[in-house]
């Protein structure tokens, strides 16, 4: 039941390369108990990431953004599964891959950085062993070269004394260093798609900036690769990403170039998120929280999901809005967005 021939939601707007990761009409759900209809956590998501670009996927917790990352890695927690739609890497659909084929992609073509570096590394394996395991799995290299490649991977993410660190264990490293190791682990086999899920959320504020710098630099450095950065923090997305997609209740509600989305948010939810970001540019400005709570995954999707929290809500919002065709790379799913509607 794969939907085909959907219009690509995001047209090329920059001179960015060919699409590397294309997600089309992706629906992900968890089967309901006793044969009830599934709880849908992603409902028709369209995203395209091109070579050399970093896309930021921004949303609150429960919006489905991490599910999208896990779906793209083939790591959806059981019993969650892809209900329909396509996930394509360089044109190859992954949704029907065998587990074995996924294992070849993960860590090779697909690299992922997780949120919490404190628990994300095996405490009884040295850094060198963890990196070496992944290198041996995906690269055909002589055993004697594994340590050299691992050391280079650590150096590339700015870890000092890289050679000595190979024999270090996670507990001997700070949180910032551990996240650098996680990034090295994601990049060591030169993936085509790099997914980072809240990579700085668990870190101290001072370390966050360093890790964001590193990610931006490394992701742009990775030739022919694309990055997907998942965050709840528009500030983080603004820092790192070329384009932004805002996700709400399992649907993309707005996409566009980062600069344009931040300067002129078209969806009330995006505007609300922006108003809730603290700024440190000296201008006194009240933080305006978005009223209400995000809907749970099981909430109905007949009307616009943001309607109960939206100041602009009207009768028209009882029908769920579709994501508009892109105009200059911008799409929005709102009955009241711009255009004099």
């Amino acid at each position: 039941m794969i939907e085909t021939a959907r219009p690509a939601a995001i047209a090329p707007v920059t001179a960015a390369g060919r699409p590397i990761l294309e997600i089309e009409g992706l629906r992900v759900g968890f089967p309901g108990p006793g044969g009830n209809p599934p709880t849908v956590v992603l409902d028709g998501v369209d995203l395209t990431i091109r070579q050399g670009e970093i896309l930021g996927l921004v949303g609150e917790s429960g919006s489905g953004k991490s599910m999208l990352a896990l779906a793209a890695m083939g790591l959806l927690p059981a019993p969650g599964r892809v209900l329909s739609g396509a996930i394509r890497i360089e044109g190859r659909d992954l949704t029907s891959l065998s587990e074995r084929a996924w294992q070849q992609l993960r860590g090779g073509t697909l690299g992922m950085v997780f949120q919490d570096p404190m628990t994300g590394l095996n405490p009884v394996r040295s850094i060198g062993a963890t990196l070496g395991e992944s290198i041996r799995r995906h690269q055909r290299v002589a055993a004697s070269d594994v340590a050299r490649i691992a050391e280079a991977a650590l150096r590339a993410v700015g870890i000092p004394a890289a050679r000595e660190r190979l024999s270090a264990y996670p507990h001997q490293l700070s949180g910032g260093l551990r996240q650098r190791v996680m990034i090295a682990l994601a990049l060591v086999n030169r993936p085509r798609v790099i997914i980072a899920d809240e990579p700085t959320t668990a870190l101290d504020a001072t370390i966050q900036a360093q890790i964001l710098d590193l990610l931006r630099e490394r992701l742009h450095h990775a030739e022919g690769a694309g990055g997907l950065m998942i965050t709840h923090d528009l500030g983080v997305a603004a820092e790192v990403c070329d384009r932004i997609a805002v996700i709400y209740h399992g649907r993309i509600v707005e996409t566009g170039q980062t600069r344009e989305v931040l300067a002129d948010p078209r969806h009330p939810y995006t505007a609300g998120l922006l108003a809730a970001v603290p700024r440190f540019d000296g201008r006194g400005r009240r933080l305006v929280p978005i009223p209400g709570q995000p809907p749970g995954p099981a909430a109905e999707r007949i009307s616009c999901s943001f309607r109960p929290r939206c100041a602009r809500a009207s009768e028209a919002c009882s029908a769920a809005p579709a994501l508009s065709p892109p105009v200059q790379g911008r799409s929005v799913a709102c009955h009241h967005s711009g255009g004099g509607q």
Partner: peptide, 13 residues
């Protein structure tokens, strides 16, 4: 544990 998920993400069977 999280490190299992990390290992999975590097392609471990």
């Amino acid at each position: 544990e999280d490190y299992i998920r990390t290992a999975r993400a590097t392609g471990a069977s």
